[in-house]
């Protein structure tokens, strides 16, 4: 095909997607962009607003509560995503071994993933319940814990316990992707490596990991985006408490716009969050591209 014609075909194929995205998101996005530079607040007659330029963003730079929320969200994202990747790969390696009932065991991976987030959150809240939860009961009955604990009421543990609930639900997805990628790694590579006397550790780093890193990184980026805007699980499990120790950026933006009705600064916070998430992802993508070029 001639370049011009190719170009036309390319755009033609993109048309349905672009039209849907533009039709639905263009107005809200422009609306948000405009709001971010105003002091708009929501009233019964619509927005009451005044143009205030960069004032919202200046306020954000100076907002220590928001900085704390960013710190918490980053902690949540880094810890849960990296644990999910490590666990996911380990489980994938395990389920790639030969053993009886493998198909059935593999199918189990779908279970946590299919449980709606809302249910997952309620389920873990009940498990962590300080008085009647099964976690306290289990840990004391097997002797790991002396007395019942308040898992979600203690700022020292609340965030980590939510992370644990998130990992349980989401690592099977990574495991599934890693498991699938493992099928593409040619078997003869391993045989050759064994002949050369490479041990299991070397084989993993030299053959297995390079074989699955491509698939893993897409999954990781998707999970990281999702984790950074995490909302539902905190909405159900802690609502930001205790003493703000689990208040994440999405919760922050939600409160600003919906609870305090400050549409203007809410929009500014939202844009800031998006920019941060974008920055984080692009740094990662750049690192990935560099790595690929090197190898």
């Amino acid at each position: 095909m001639a370049p011009a014609q190719q170009d036309r075909t390319a755009w033609l194929l993109l048309t349905p997607m672009i039209s849907i995205m533009v039709l639905v998101t263009a107005f809200p996005l422009l609306n948000t962009l405009w709001l971010a530079f105003t002091d708009a607040s929501l009233t019964g007659q619509g927005y009451v607003w005044q143009w205030i330029g960069l004032e919202n963003f200046a306020y954000i730079l100076d907002d220590s509560d928001f900085r704390a929320a960013v710190g918490r969200t980053t902690y949540f994202t880094v810890l849960s995503v990296s644990a999910e990747v490590v666990l996911g790969v380990l489980v994938a390696l395990l389920l790639n071994q030969e053993f009886k009932g493998r198909t059935l065991v593999r199918a189990l991976l779908i279970l946590p993933w299919a449980l709606p987030t809302i249910v997952n959150a309620v389920m873990w809240r009940l498990i962590y319940n300080p008085e009647y939860g099964s976690l306290n009961a289990l840990l004391t009955q097997i002797g790991l814990l002396d007395a019942y604990r308040s898992w979600l009421g203690d700022p020292a543990t609340a965030m980590n316990m939510v992370i644990l609930a998130d990992i349980w639900k989401n690592y099977p997805l990574i495991a599934l992707i890693a498991l699938a990628a493992l099928q593409t790694v040619p078997k003869d590579l391993y045989e050759a490596a064994i002949m050369d006397g490479a041990n299991a550790w070397t084989r993993f780093w030299k053959i297995t990991l390079p074989g699955i890193i491509g698939s893993l990184s897409v999954a990781m980026v998707l999970r990281a985006i999702e984790a950074f805007k995490v909302f539902d699980i905190f909405y159900v499990m802690t609502r930001g408490g205790p003493a703000d120790s689990t208040k994440t950026v999405s919760f922050f933006v939600y409160q600003e716009s919906f609870t305090y009705l400050r549409a203007g600064s809410g929009a500014a916070y939202a844009l800031t969050v998006t920019a941060m998430s974008g920055l984080m992802i692009s740094i990662y993508v750049v690192m990935l591209v560099r790595r690929e070029k090197r190898s």
């Binding site: 995205m21 950074f228 809410g266």
Partner: peptide, 15 residues
């Protein structure tokens, strides 16, 4: 397109 996926949902909800 992926950037729209990064937005907190609150942005789109009210408009």
């Amino acid at each position: 397109v992926i950037v729209t996926y990064m937005m907190p949902p609150v942005v789109l909800i009210l408009p």
